[in-house]
Structures are given as C-alpha cells and as structure tokens.
Computed example of a mutant assay.
Amino acid sequence: MKPGIHPDYRHVVFRDRSGDLTFLTRSTVTSEQTIEWEGDTYPVIDVDISSASHPFWTGRGRVVDTEGRVERFRRRYGAET
C-alpha cells in the first residue's frame, strides 16, 4: 500500500438514540463529537436506524399491499393460482 494516501482506521462509537444502542467498532469515518466509552474517549457517530430500531429486526414491521400488487401482476401476466 502507498503510504500517506489512506484515511486513518480507528475506533469509533456508533449510537442509535431511538433504539438505545451504542457499539464500538473500527471505521475511517470522522466526527467532531466524542463520547466516553469504558474510560477512553472516542469519536461518536449518530445513526438514524440500526438493528435495535429497524422494523424488520424488531418485529414491528408489516407488509402493506395497498394496490393489490400480487393480483395486478397475476392479471397482467396471466399467472394461474
């Protein structure tokens, strides 16, 4: 690898406030905000959605077929049931 062209790969804390989830990982993303994590200070990135708040992972999601897409597909392409 060429020296001096790659971003710093360091520990970063990602925080999902709506799901009350915080985890430490490594990333090249930068942030001006910091957080205290187990006695050390790390940059923190606030995310909108994570596995703690996403409807698919929490089981709160539902499939809404407002236009009858399956029926419309069957009508259009003549699929038999």
Rank of each mutant, 00 (worst) to 15 (best):
P55C: 10
R75I: 00
R26T: 08
R69I: 15
D8Y: 01
Y9T: 01
R10D: 13
S50N: 11
V64F: 13
S53F: 09
I5T: 03
S50K: 08
T58L: 07
V64D: 15
V29I: 14
T66V: 10
V29W: 02
S31I: 13
I49C: 13
T22C: 06
S53M: 05
E38S: 13
F56E: 13
T58D: 05
S53T: 07
V64E: 12
I5A: 00
R26K: 11
E80T: 15
T22M: 11
G78V: 09
H11Y: 04
H54R: 09
G68A: 12
Y9K: 01
Q33F: 06
A79E: 14
L24E: 01
Q33Y: 06
L24H: 01
V70I: 13
P43W: 06
W57G: 02
V47C: 05
T34M: 03
P7Y: 01
R15S: 12
D8S: 09
Y42K: 05
T25V: 05
R26G: 01
T22S: 13
T58A: 13
R75T: 02
R26N: 03
H11D: 01
F56A: 09
E36N: 08
S18C: 02
I5S: 07
T66R: 15
Y42L: 05
E32L: 08
F14D: 12
V47L: 09
G39A: 11
T28V: 15
P3T: 06
R17S: 10
V13L: 08
F23S: 01
G59Y: 05
F14Y: 06
V12C: 00
T34F: 07
R76A: 06
Y9V: 04
S51K: 10
T22D: 08
E36Q: 11
P7K: 12
E32A: 15
